[in-house]
């Protein structure tokens, strides 16, 4: 059962568009899947390798702008942004890693936080390249219907899920965990920690960038405030993983479902919509107090809290 469960879940999700769901519900599903991709990416670096990034919007934004600029400046379909972003984001992540991965723990977090902000300000002030605050509009949308977007992001999510599983189960995954648990000990046992942290960062960044490039194609409009957002991307991705379960495979998926639904729910409440960050904050406090390992990480505890016990 445990072995086929993931296949069943994916199959169940894959038939959803065939049920004639409303465009809005399909939109929420697409956002959920996109966030689980970003969550899985963050989790690889932050959860498994222990390098907590507060600047994943930087990679998301670079991916998104790769797509946007290819379309806007070179007249190429923005879909080419997805393969192109792999290379662009990888080079960018190598550069960022070279600077920030010398830092440890909270200092790395602060360094990445700065990277995100620097990129937003840069994008705002380079109108020749990015159109500045006007943003980039994709005028010819590929499809009006959302079904294809749904299957594209679902395919990406499945591939990323399998990749993360493969990486974590490999030698690389052990090195990541060793670095998370004790970097000095890992180093003295012969692990080139800088090298492996760079690999984790690049993998995580490239996946996040792919989601960014998808976002450009899907939403059809990007501007620096949206794709380099500190609160709405860098922080939300941390919440997605924390709520779902740090260093678990399904955590980011569960976390993104909860976060996206919660955001949509709060937005629908009149007068309170703008206060969604307040609700996120409250949720984070509750999670940290009661489920410090996230929903997936604390399943046994959750069962106990809900009064479900195994029959003795």
């Amino acid at each position: 059962m445990k072995k086929i469960a993931p296949t069943l879940i994916v199959a169940a999700i894959a038939v959803l568009p065939l049920l004639g769901l409303s465009t809005y519900i399909l939109h929420v599903l697409i956002l959920t899947i996109m966030w689980s991709v970003i969550g899985m990416a963050w989790n690889l670096l932050g959860g498994f390798c222990g390098q907590v990034s507060f600047g994943h919007a930087a990679f998301f934004g670079v991916g998104a702008y790769t797509s946007g600029i290819l379309y806007n400046k070179f007249g190429i379909s923005a879909w080419w942004g997805m393969p192109a972003s792999i290379g662009v984001v990888a080079v960018f992540a190598l550069f960022i890693g070279f600077i920030t991965l010398r830092l440890r723990g909270p200092f790395f977090a602060l360094g990445t936080l700065a990277v995100g902000v620097i990129l937003r300000v840069t994008a705002e002030n380079l109108p020749d390249v990015t159109e500045g605050n006007l943003g980039i509009m994709i005028r010819e949308r590929s499809w009006v219907d959302k079904t294809w977007y749904f299957y594209i992001i679902l395919t990406l999510a499945v591939l990323v899920f399998l990749l993360v599983k493969k990486v974590v189960g490999s030698r690389l995954g052990y090195y990541f965990v060793a670095i998370r648990e004790d970097q000095d000990a890992a180093e003295s046992l012969g692990i080139n920690t800088t090298y492996y942290k760079t690999i984790a960062l690049c993998l995580s960044a490239v996946i996040t960038g792919l989601a960014g490039a998808f976002y450009t194609n899907y939403m059809g409009y990007i501007d620096p405030k949206v794709v380099f957002a500190l609160h709405d991307i860098s922080i939300v991705v941390i919440m997605v993983v924390m709520v779902g379960g740090v260093a678990t495979f399904w955590g980011p998926v569960v976390g993104s479902a909860i976060m996206v639904l919660l955001a949509e729910l709060i937005r629908s409440i009149p007068m309170l919509g703008a206060a969604h960050l307040t609700f996120f904050g409250v949720l984070l406090i509750v999670i940290i107090i009661f489920l410090p390992n996230g929903i997936i990480g604390d399943i046994p505890k959750l069962k106990r809290l809900l009064g479900i016990r195994k029959n003795l």
């Binding site: 060793a178 003295s188 046992l189 012969g190």
Partner: peptide
């Protein structure tokens, strides 16, 4: 020599407070 290369020279360090990988 970089610390991660040192182990191949035949030198091992059992650090203070053990520094195990507790989740392995």
């Amino acid at each position: 020599i970089e610390p991660y290369e040192l182990i191949e020279t035949g030198l091992a360090h059992v650090p203070e407070a053990r520094r195990l990988f507790v989740e392995m």
